[in-house]
Design a protein around this nucleic acid. Structure first.
Lengths: 174, 174
DNA sequence: ACCAGAAAGTCTCATATGAGACCATCTCGA
DNA sequence: TCGAGATGGTCTCATATGAGACTTTCTGGT
């Protein structure tokens, strides 16, 4: 079960005919958009992340911490929490583990000694370089069915949604 | 940390100025679209699901199983796996737990005694009715920043992406 | 300058999860 | 009709995770 669906010969399997309606109707009455986002994202992200976990021995918080550090060094644990959606306890554990593996380096923030800035090591960068291409390639495959114009529009809409997250994310009464 | 961001008085807090650039640039170099999808979806889904887990004592596989059964009774565990992205072991556990709580009912499939069709009980329907409105409302809030036209277009693009998932999801070499 | 409260990060404990073995049943080709 | 392989579902074990307590440091109002 799950994302990997290969027939014995390794080629993609045709969906059994009786299953099609389920695929198309699913979520038809409730949570249409949210359901579809989750559906697509799951198939994009889970297999890749599981693979990284198994092959490189990283946990999810460790993976995303390296992703964050790759594009901005010096961020703190709480910033990673803020934008990754992981709980701070898990990011904390991940950071401790990454440091133990010499993949990142920690430095106390001069202006606020509670904080610690994080930096990648060469080893960290090398490990990151080993798993990011597959993620990029898989993102490309996910989006391949859209035209360039559609992709741009999709990205624009996602940007808009992302920008407005703070306006409703705090409504945890819902 | 995490989705809930309330200031002491309970109103939404303005983002600290130095954090804004991080939010906007994040994912700017890699996985732009996938990152944003994950970001938005996390803030939509996690708080709601955590809340349901805590208040109603359901696990995630149990939650999604009820959601699936709500709109189509008689589905099997493997169909739920197929479309929910959960591992079959977890769905299996969830189903066993749901039956134990009398929220669903199982019936052996006449034509294939390996399979078992699943049905909601009145209690299951009642419990579902207790948590789905919050999810609906939260989806509405998430999408509130889009115009109606944009929402339609977003949904159309998601449909297209979802329909093409089978074409690339099997590529687990990536 | 002080104190109450917020924030950063770490820790503990119980639980949910992922991986994969396992059994029973079904399917399909020889 | 038989047997090999696929499929549906369950189980076990190790691990990752969520909740929340706790410590230390910072901040803002008085």
């Amino acid at each position: 079960m799950r994302p990997s669906r290969k027939s014995p010969n390794g080629t993609t399997k045709d969906l059994p005919p009786e299953r099609e309606p389920l695929a198309t109707v699913i979520g038809g009455t409730e949570l249409q958009i949210a359901y579809r986002m989750g559906y697509v994202l799951n198939f994009y992200r889970e297999p890749s992340f599981r693979r990284i976990e198994m092959e490189l021995g990283l946990t999810r918080p460790e993976i995303v911490t390296l992703i964050f550090l790759n594009f901005r060094e010096g961020v703190t644990a709480s910033e990673i929490c803020e934008f990754s959606g992981h709980l701070k306890a898990n990011i904390s554990r991940g950071i401790i583990a990454l440091e133990k593996k010499k993949l990142i380096r920690r430095a106390a923030d001069k202006t606020d000694s509670r904080r610690q800035q994080l930096f990648m090591t060469a080893a960290g960068r090398a490990l990151y370089a080993r798993y990011i291409p597959a993620l990029r390639e898989r993102e490309r495959a996910m989006l391949a069915c859209l035209t360039r114009a559609e992709r741009n529009e999709f990205e624009r809409l996602l940007d808009k949604l992302a920008a407005h997250v703070p306006q409703w994310a705090a409504l945890d009464e819902l």
